[in-house]
Write a protein that binds this DNA or RNA. Structure first.
Lengths: 134, 134
DNA sequence: CATTATGTGGGATTTATTCCTATATAGGAT
DNA sequence: ATCCTATATAGGAATAAATCCCACATAATG
């Protein structure tokens, strides 16, 4: 297990990582919790949440874009894309015509009825770059 | 107000739409609630939540990608993109090299330190297409 | 083993969203 | 202007998601 990036290897962590890989779907934290509970009936949700975000930080697993904990609305209904600051969670719109025409591979389109394609750029905004403190 | 798509125009709805446009940021439902509360001290959160999703459905406003209510993890840390079924909320990975090289406009990069760019395709998966019911 | 920095359980708390239902009201009909 | 009723709202309760807290447990090092 390539997880020696300065953190301990516990049975819970092994089980959580296995669960993320096992489900095949893209599980949410509670699905992982339920899966792991079978082997570790006493595991706490906090452990699952902590471990999942730790693993995401260390790039052991990924996640689907999710900005903060709440859904974010946007008055702009024109075609546009998003810059998302990972530090302050502000979202900025940007336009790029070349991004509006993206066509997923034909094999993908064959099994998926496409409605809309959006590009999300994750990074750090200028303001947060100035704020040196970390 | 172009909102005569078969729904009523209430003062609350006007205020909510104004709030989404006013804030400039991409507000979450609670930010809209707090903003509207200034004029409508008795408005209920339920009204705000209902109205926002109604407006999103009718394409009066948009939202930043948010799949369901919970963050979704992904064991795949390789470069890839996502197909998101709007009906069952399953998420499928796909790869497309041409999507891995997307460069936002220079003006954008100038004010944003880019980490990662991901393409999200929203639509309906085959299984849900078969399921005729709606 | 013995030590200790790190991790865990589980219950409480906070935050986000939705449900429920009695009451109010927009908007077409009168 | 007033009535009617389908639709919308308030506000409180319920559910869901994520996080906090801290006494206790345990990986990893020597």
């Amino acid at each position: 297990m390539l997880r020696e990036q300065g953190t301990r290897v516990t049975p819970q962590r092994v089980a959580i990582l296995r669960a993320v890989k096992a489900t095949g779907i893209h599980p949410d934290a509670d699905a992982v919790y339920r899966h792991v509970s079978r082997e570790h009936p006493h595991i706490s949700r906090d452990t699952v949440y902590r471990t999942l975000s730790m693993m995401e930080e260390k790039n052991i697993i990924g996640s689907v874009l999710f900005v903060g904990n709440a859904k974010r609305y946007d008055p702009n209904t024109a075609r546009h894309h998003h810059l998302i600051c990972l530090r302050c969670r502000k979202i900025f719109d940007f336009s790029a015509e070349k991004f509006d025409l993206l066509e997923p591979p034909a094999s993908t389109l064959a099994r998926f009825q496409m409605f809309r394609t959006t590009v999300h750029v994750e990074g750090i905004c200028v303001e947060c770059q100035k704020r040196k403190t970390m």
